[in-house]
Design a protein around this nucleic acid. Structure first.
Lengths: 235, 235
DNA sequence: GAAACGCTTCGGCCGCGACCGAAACGACAC
DNA sequence: GTGTCGTTTCGGTCGCGGCCGAAGCGTTTC
């Protein structure tokens, strides 16, 4: 919102395919060195460096220096939201009636939004954890009572203490547009996603952002959280 | 969502201040002729025409021909959502901690989202109408029972029949990000906003989009809908 | 019919920016 | 120290696109 007329410069940052490619390579939340981003975007290192400098100045990415590498991360969920809004503008045919593309359905199934778990699965996981007393919805964020922490550690191997020690917001309650419901984000959301990956319940699909539920993941979600991944919601 | 990598061309449409100015002049939902848009954007008619042609090709605006005029309208709520997402990217300082600017607060107070009433006031109006039986929330949209139509006509002068006859969706339930609650949109939402304007309850503030509640509006919202505009929600 | 008006198309000018290769700048390894 | 590697900075080329004025097209008015 707000925006006097000043959105043009930041929109210009998204107006170049190379820069969009760089951002798209970063939406999974993992930091990546400039060289890899250059390779993925299909340009020389010098060109990518210029793009990264502009994205940095615009706040769309942030840097961390590690030795002689510079790791770039996405600049925040606002950036992902903007990418998705632009995608909604570019995706559907200009005609008014919009229907979901198969790609959209695939992504909807389970996806890594920024670096926490969003989409239908993220909402269901969050609800299941609330039902089991592992999460309590407070003001704009979730809390984890002591018995909840034990449950998360025992059943899922989640290290709540580590998430709490992070400098990031602990367990933000994030509203998912398409699901119209909350899911847990922040440090705890990232930790959950990391555990699901480590447990082999989720694995990256071939296409960039989507996550696939593995057979063992189906069992895990059903037995531990009571979520039936085969239900119609995920069709 | 979706977005293979194709968002760059549509982002380029928002990368020019003149085009953004044109779109910004259209977000209130009223159709405007090309000449007026050129004047508001501060360019010659020929330049504006080129911009409008590009916006049209991208689906960001639509045209209607009336006599020798061509009236342009905004291309849909998706466009407004994209503008707001870009504004969220441009507005807050690059540093992480985000706080609302005074402009944001002013706009939040009451605003014309697309052409229906959104923001805190839109949500409250919708809730008040639901409480009084004028609206019933159905599946993704509101319905107006017969006694509700009578109430809307008597107390506010809203012509429900005309809204129902419109080719637009009648009374879509639209989720407001910042308020995290529904408000009524579609033809009925536009009709409501029009009535509030005609009654003199709302008037445009100096800054483009914001709407101001007039003194008589304060009385009206309180007496007819039980909404206290002075409450802290609107601060 | 002619004239006025709204809008679009065309030609030309100018500047921004995307790209690359070469060179400079660190950080690490030996 | 020297060499190597990841990254940034610099110079130069090239094409895209925003801007205007003039001309063209369609509509309304007299």
């Amino acid at each position: 919102m707000i925006t006097d007329g000043s959105i043009a410069p930041v929109a210009a940052l998204l107006a170049d395919p190379t820069r969009v490619g760089i951002l798209w390579a970063l939406v999974d939340g993992r930091p990546k060195p400039a060289g890899e981003l250059a390779r993925q975007a299909g340009v020389r290192a010098s060109t990518a460096s210029e793009h990264l400098a502009r994205l940095l100045a615009g706040g769309l990415v942030v840097v961390e220096r590690h030795g002689r590498h510079r790791y770039y991360r996405i600049g925040g969920e606002r950036v992902v939201a903007a990418l998705e809004a632009m995608g909604a503008l570019a995706g559907p045919a200009p005609s008014s009636g919009y229907r979901q593309s198969s790609a959209a359905r695939a992504v909807r199934h389970a996806r890594a939004c920024y670096d926490h778990l969003a989409g239908a699965l993220g909402v269901d996981v969050t609800r299941a954890l609330v039902e089991r007393g592992a999460l309590v919805l407070g003001n704009e964020q979730y809390e984890v009572p002591p018995e909840g922490a034990a449950l998360l550690a025992d059943r899922l191997g989640v290290d709540v203490g580590r998430a709490r020690a992070s400098r990031r917001q602990f367990a933000k309650a994030c509203l998912d547009w398409t699901e119209r419901s909350y899911h847990v984000a922040g440090a705890l959301g990232a930790e959950l996603l990391e555990r699901f990956r480590a447990l082999g319940w989720l694995e990256p699909a071939e296409g960039s952002r989507a996550l696939r539920v593995t057979p063992s993941g189906r069992r895990g979600f059903r037995d531990v959280l009571g979520i039936d991944v085969l239900s119609s919601r995920y069709g």
